[in-house]
Nucleic acid binder design. Structure first.
Length: 486
DNA sequence: GGAACTCGCCAC
DNA sequence: AAACGTGGCGAGTTCC
């Protein structure tokens, strides 16, 4: 079917004026972005990523062997035999949450506060770990192995055509106006777990003779949020070399004088503050959850009197509990109060403009029932408060990536380059690079993401930064290493 | 025998 | 007063 699309303006969405006034983007700009994005994604979907089928086959067999071995070993345990007995001698399905739930909570009468969305006792990884039973740890590992086997390896084989998988990239499915991917999903290939990372990414390759390159915007959601709220303290953090928001929060949360992010233990505290307080707060979490999560991370019990020796070490001879005690935090409820004060300080003193912006956005939405994003999109349906604050940021951050991707793709095509964009992961672009073009492509991507984008959209009030990684020639997606863009 | 639902888990 | 944002997908289960 041939559709009659409206006239599409060339890639120009906003016009800067010389008095620094930001030009607001319209629904038409938003439409054009998605329209051009769809056309470019259609091109990209024809490229795909090479998959080493022999390797996948070998890994599947290895996994099968390992799964069989661990399953057999599990079947000899007391827990398994008891479980089997409890259901009348039938073999339990160790992958069935329903069966496991009945066994753990009805037969064994274990207890947990962790609940599923429907209010049932949870049997997820974290809950099982808390019971500290070796058999359950085996079940966790078997679940992980099976996930790799089915969601990734098996699906790659199913989806591949002539040795290439060709993921689909959608622009019409996500409520925030982000993109998504399927068949297979290019956006959830394992990264953090080393075993999974190696097994899955070593199956994926560029075209013969080429190398993979990945370029991602660093911290783009934080930067885009700053374009909305324009909090001067946040802008200072983001634009001043050496200023370190997560480090400052770590020092405040863990009561550290002389915080040094380069010291190894302080580095851990910093990432705990980042992932256990700052980012959850940005998404709308609150102090009590933060306190629970941070205690879990620091290996502190959720009990009111901590022992001096409890918790991870913050230096060679001082535990986190001992350090807290010196500052009057003697146990969990003191720590919750401490986190409550920090949360209050975070939104009312440190980032007070950001905090006020959030309230203002929510008020405006409650009055009008809708709002616009800086990229021109309209959000006009029922949303919770957190969503009102998060959606436009998530959407606009992705639109920065999308605009850059469209432009890079068009220029690659116009110059008849052999380098191809093969995918996108929300804030990153993955390219299959023809080595003679490496230098030129690097410059193009860098210039587009850090210069052209900002020239195009004058609401971007701070420089956006990108990091890149490059694979070896004929190297897999696991071979990527830090790469400095020229 | 398939649709719809739930859960867990991978990514950002 | 309430309290973590967005997806895709496989498997198990339940319902028709």
């Amino acid at each position: 079917m041939i559709l009659n699309y409206p006239y599409i303006k060339p890639l120009r969405y906003a016009v800067s004026s010389n008095n620094m006034k930001t030009t607001s983007m319209t629904l038409m700009n938003a439409y054009n972005l998605l329209h051009e994005g769809s056309l470019v994604f259609a091109d990209i979907e024809t490229h795909g990523i090479r998959v080493d089928l022999e390797y996948v086959d070998r890994k599947q067999q290895e996994l099968d062997k390992l799964i069989t071995k661990e399953t057999k070993q599990l079947q000899t345990t007391k827990l398994y035999r008891h479980w089997k007995h409890s259901i009348g001698g039938k073999e339990p399905n160790i992958y069935s949450d329903t069966q496991l739930r009945v066994y753990l909570f009805r037969i064994r009468k274990l207890r947990t506060e962790n609940k599923t969305n429907k209010g049932l006792e949870s049997v997820d990884k974290q809950t099982l770990l808390e019971f500290d039973l070796p058999e359950l740890n085996t079940i966790i590992h078997l679940r992980e192995l099976r996930k790799l086997r089915t969601t990734y390896l098996q699906n790659f084989v199913k989806e591949q055509v002539d040795g290439f998988i060709k993921p689909i990239f959608n622009l019409h499915l996500v409520v925030t106006y982000r993109g998504s991917s399927d068949s297979p999903n290019f956006q959830n290939i394992p990264k953090r777990n080393e075993e999974a990372f190696d097994m899955i990414r070593n199956a994926l390759f560029p075209r013969k003779g080429n190398q993979l390159m990945e370029v991602d915007f660093s911290g783009i959601e934080v930067s885009i949020a700053a374009c909305y709220h324009q909090d001067p303290v946040m802008l200072e953090y983001l634009t001043t070399p050496g200023k370190d928001m997560h480090g400052d929060m770590a020092a405040q949360i863990f009561c550290i004088e002389g915080f040094d992010r380069n010291c190894e233990k302080h580095g851990y505290l910093r990432s705990a503050a980042k992932n256990g307080f700052v980012f959850p707060q940005f998404y709308g979490d609150y102090y009590k959850n933060n306190a629970i999560g941070l205690c879990r991370w620091a290996e502190l019990p959720l009990r009111d009197k901590w022992k001096q020796t409890e918790g991870v070490l913050i230096n060679d001879n001082c535990s986190v509990a001992a350090n807290f005690k010196r500052h009057g935090i003697k146990g969990f409820s003191d720590f919750v109060n401490h986190m409550q004060k920090i949360e209050h300080d975070f939104w009312n003193n440190r980032f007070k403009v950001y905090g006020a912006w959030k309230l203002q956005r929510i008020r405006e939405y409650q009055k009008t029932g809708e709002f616009r994003s800086l990229t021109g999109f309209k959000y006009s349906w029922e949303m919770r408060k957190n969503q009102v604050v998060n959606y436009p940021v998530q959407g606009s951050a992705f639109h920065c990536l999308l605009w850059s991707l469209i432009r890079v793709h068009k220029i690659l095509k116009k110059r008849n380059y052999q380098t191809r964009i093969i995918g996108q992961i929300h804030d990153s672009i993955v390219l299959d690079v023809y080595p003679p073009e490496l230098e030129a492509v690097s410059k193009l991507v860098k210039k587009t993401t850090t210069k052209a984008l900002q020239q195009e959209w004058d609401w971007i009030i701070l420089p956006l930064k990108v990091d890149a990684e490059l694979g070896r020639v004929d190297g897999s997606w696991a071979s990527l290493e830090k790469y400095k863009l020229p």
